[in-house]
Write a protein that binds this DNA or RNA. Structure first.
Length: 470
RNA sequence: GUCCCCAUCGUCUAGCACGGCCCAGGACGCCGGCCUCUCACGCCGGUGACGGGGGUUCAAAUCCCCCUGGGGACGCCA
């Protein structure tokens, strides 16, 4: 017997697709509930539909979970390896007269539904085999004997009391003709077996719940706490599509989102904590609670995700970001400096990058070799005019003999030069930037020069001048 | 079609369970400004919502009803 006070939650993805935004948030809520209550979190793969489930999806889902930092205490369990267990429960229900064999074909059942629809009723199986006492046989399914009247009610932490007239329900299938268990049977059996105490899931499952409640009762077990969270929709207020959100969360990793930013953004879709927007994962584990869940559907907003990510990029230390940046440099076929250098560089990039991919983009002039910088002739024409070249030649000489090459010395040194020449920094800033980075935008010049080092700065100025003159 | 759920700025939301502190607060976005060597960051300001109608009450974003709108479910998918 398990300790009744321990919270046990679970995440039961079906390996028929990727882990997307919606699934990830469901997983996160359940994980957070377990973690915040000192409970356990179970991972279970619902692969009873053998044809549609795949190993690749399973791997992809597990990797996404690990990437998000949603570690599980038990599992992963695979329903496909537990068919014996489900069969025992089905037999039990059969013995107790709570289930029966049915020989109706899918076509026949479809016809029954059609007839009901025509009468303006809810499409249902009509119970033809309910009292026929059929024996087991090939092509026969097992159906649950649902009550014909009364109502089935349950409590939901978000929706309150929910009740459905039993006449709305039909004798749903527990075991398919091929002998495999259906979803409704398998979830309930597993949730009972695994001692699940709290079930948080998308509210598209709300109308399944009465059926499951009926099964719990037939099995004479206590109900878990249900919580049906609102669904996440696309900008068009429709179901998430591949364009926005329905892709694998691993795609967000590829685009340069941080896992902490991901969970931060996701948790705020349907949950709040006063006016706070930014949370670390550790903070969430502490502050999450069922009380602050909201019950209306929400829309996935890529812009806000980007902003949350930028906040986490700023909050992370250069030491933590360095190895990640290395991954992105490599993925972009860029040279990959050692972490020591990157730790110097990253603070200049943090305020500018909304994603790690953007950080890699900003890093380009700092990781490319001097001779590999590609100058746009138009930029050179515009900024390295003959007049400017005159000043830069002189600056080059000054810099060659610069007493120090840290940003403060550089600022002082260049300041003196400007004063002697009687010109303002503004006049030379962009030309220097173009020469040093082959770009119109970069981090501050003095910091950039310090990072680049004297040798590169001189080489780049020389090279840019030559190209401009030639 | 039938049943279920939901309803505060364009979006995420606070407030609603214990009506008055709310001519509704924060955040993203957008617009303007400041900072400034560029681009960003940051800071300051602005834009912008209680879906409609009935009640209940001295008083309603908050309670009740209807309408409307949106979403979901109705599988031998999960």
């Amino acid at each position: 017997m398990r300790d009744m006070h321990t919270v046990v939650t679970r995440f039961p993805p079906s390996p028929t697709g990727n882990l997307h935004i919606g699934g990830a948030r469901t997983a996160l809520f359940n994980w957070l509930l377990a973690r915040s209550m000192g409970g356990r979190f179970v991972l279970r793969l619902e692969d009873t539909d053998v044809d549609r489930s795949s190993r690749e999806m399973t791997h992809s889902i597990l990797e996404a979970m690990r990437w998000l930092g949603l570690d599980w205490d038990e599992g992963p369990f695979y329903q496909s390896q537990r068919f014996d267990l489900y069969q025992r429960f089905i037999d039990h229900l059969l013995d107790k007269g709570r289930a029966y064999y049915c020989s109706c074909t899918p076509q026949e059942v479809e016809q029954m539904r059609e007839e009901a629809r025509e009468k303006g009723e809810k499409p249902k199986y009509n119970g033809r085999c309910r009292e026929r006492n059929l024996d087991p046989g090939p092509e026969r399914v097992v159906r649950f004997k649902s009550p014909l009247e009364g109502e089935t009610a349950f409590k939901d932490v978000l929706k309150g009391d929910v009740a459905v007239d039993n006449r709305e329900l039909d004798d749903f299938v527990l075991r398919r003709a091929d002998g495999t268990p259906t979803y409704n049977l398998a979830v309930v059996v597993d949730d009972v077996e695994m001692g699940i105490t709290h079930i948080l899931r998308g509210d598209d499952h709300l109308s399944n719940t009465p059926k499951q409640v009926l099964l719990y009762r037939a099995l004479e077990t206590e109900l878990p706490v249900f919580g049906h969270v609102p669904m996440i929709m696309g900008p068009d207020k429709k179901r998430l599509s591949k364009r926005h959100g329905a892709m694998s969360v691993l795609e967000y990793r590829r685009q340069g989102f941080l896992p902490e930013a991901m969970t931060n953004y996701l948790v705020r879709l349907g949950w709040s904590y006063g006016d706070q927007e930014i949370f670390s994962q550790a903070e969430l584990r502490e502050k999450f609670s069922l009380r602050n869940l909201s019950k209306s559907a929400c829309v996935f907003d890529p812009d806000k995700l980007l902003w949350v990510n930028s906040q986490h990029i700023k909050a992370n230390s250069p030491q933590e970001l360095a190895p990640l940046l290395q991954d992105f440099l490599q993925a972009n076929d860029l040279p990959c400096p050692d972490t020591g250098y990157l730790i110097q560089l990253i603070p200049l990039l943090q305020p500018r990058a909304k994603t790690m991919q953007e950080m890699a983009d900003w890093a380009v002039p700092f990781v490319r070799a001097d001779q590999d910088l590609v100058y746009d002739p138009e930029l050179l024409d515009k900024f390295l005019t003959a007049e400017i070249a005159y000043y830069l030649r002189q600056l080059l000489n000054i810099l060659r003999d610069a007493p120090g090459f840290d940003k403060d010395s550089l600022e002082a040194c260049i300041g003196d030069f400007l004063q002697e020449q009687g010109i303002r920094f503004k006049k030379l800033a962009q030309p220097i930037r173009v020469a040093l980075t082959a770009s119109k935008a970069s981090p501050g010049l003095f910091e950039s020069m310090e990072i680049l080092g004297q040798k590169s700065v001189l080489a780049r100025l020389e090279r840019a001048l030559q190209q401009a003159e030639g």
